[in-house]
């Protein structure tokens, strides 16, 4: 009991300090389902009109469901590409004695250090040239390519912790190198794979600048671009609806975090088996 008494000043101090954030978050939610009189913070009526974008498509804008589907396609596809490439490339860099291994490792690091936005003009020109501009496939490939270096490094780190003997035992047991990787090594790095997958999905879900520049068209818009379009629209500016769409946009992320936070922690913990 004394523990509670002693800690109350800290709790109070922390509460005061974090109050603005708590207020911000609660108003993000409250404003989407109420109306307040001008100049007041206290809502005076309950309403669902700010959520009407869910059932009516506004003129000149794509349907929210189409946009959500695009977001899912974009995030999960780039996540899948990152996973496939990282899980194989990480293994090669960790285990196989390929020529130029050190060069690759350093190169991958440098690529990761490159801010994507500095490349955007070049990428735009390339996509235009190959005919993938304003298409989901084009922006998925670009996003995956930009996230890949980090993924490869993370997976290499996880592979490094798998003992050599397991692979040698597998080979002596008669398994091919591929079977050893697939059946014996991959299961050891499952936590890493899971964390990376989640990470890549969230990166894709929150990506704004790439789809904004490379796939702005109505058919291929993703949620972040749709949301930005709401603010940019000076004619019918609706703060409460902007908040509602924002809430709609972050809900899947929150749900993912709730269910999988333990795996996300894993990515920073290095590959040690729990």
């Amino acid at each position: 009991m004394t523990g509670h008494l002693k800690s109350w000043p800290f709790v109070l101090a922390l509460s005061i300090i974090s109050a603005p954030i708590v207020l911000m978050y609660s108003y993000l939610f409250i404003d989407t389902i109420t109306n307040s009189p001008p100049g007041s913070f206290i809502p005076h009526e309950f309403t669902l009109e700010h959520w009407r974008f869910l059932w009516e498509t506004r003129p000149g804008k794509p349907s929210i469901w189409r946009v959500t589907l695009n977001s899912f396609l974009f995030a999960s596809s780039s996540c899948l590409v990152v996973l496939v490439v990282s899980s194989t490339a990480g293994y090669v860099l960790s285990r196989l004695n390929v020529p130029g291994r050190a060069f690759f490792l350093a190169g991958v690091m440098v690529l990761h250090a490159f801010p994507a936005v500095t490349l955007i003009v070049a990428i735009f020109l390339v996509l235009q040239m190959v005919g993938l501009y304003n298409s989901l496939i084009g922006v998925i490939l670009v996003k995956a390519a930009i996230d890949m270096p980090l993924g490869i490094w993370i997976m290499k780190g996880f592979y490094d912790t798998v003992p050599w003997e397991i692979e040698m035992a597998g080979i002596a047991d008669g398994a091919s190198r591929f079977t050893v990787w697939r059946k014996l090594v991959l299961p050891q790095v499952k936590p890493g794979l899971f964390a990376l997958g989640l990470f890549a999905f969230l990166l894709g879900w929150s990506e704004f600048i790439l789809p904004q520049v490379l796939a702005p068209g109505g058919d291929v818009q993703v949620l972040s671009v749709y949301l930005a379009g709401l603010i940019a629209d000076d004619n019918n500016f609706d703060m409460a609806m902007f908040k509602s769409v924002g809430l709609f946009y972050i809900a899947p992320v929150l749900i993912l975090f709730l269910f999988f936070q333990k795996y996300l922690m894993n990515i920073y913990g290095g590959g040690t088996k729990g």
Binding site: E165, I166, M168, A169, P187, K273
Partner: peptide
């Protein structure tokens, strides 16, 4: 092997 190298999963 000295470490037995059993497949942990």
């Amino acid at each position: 092997f000295q470490s037995y190298a059993l497949y942990p999963h």
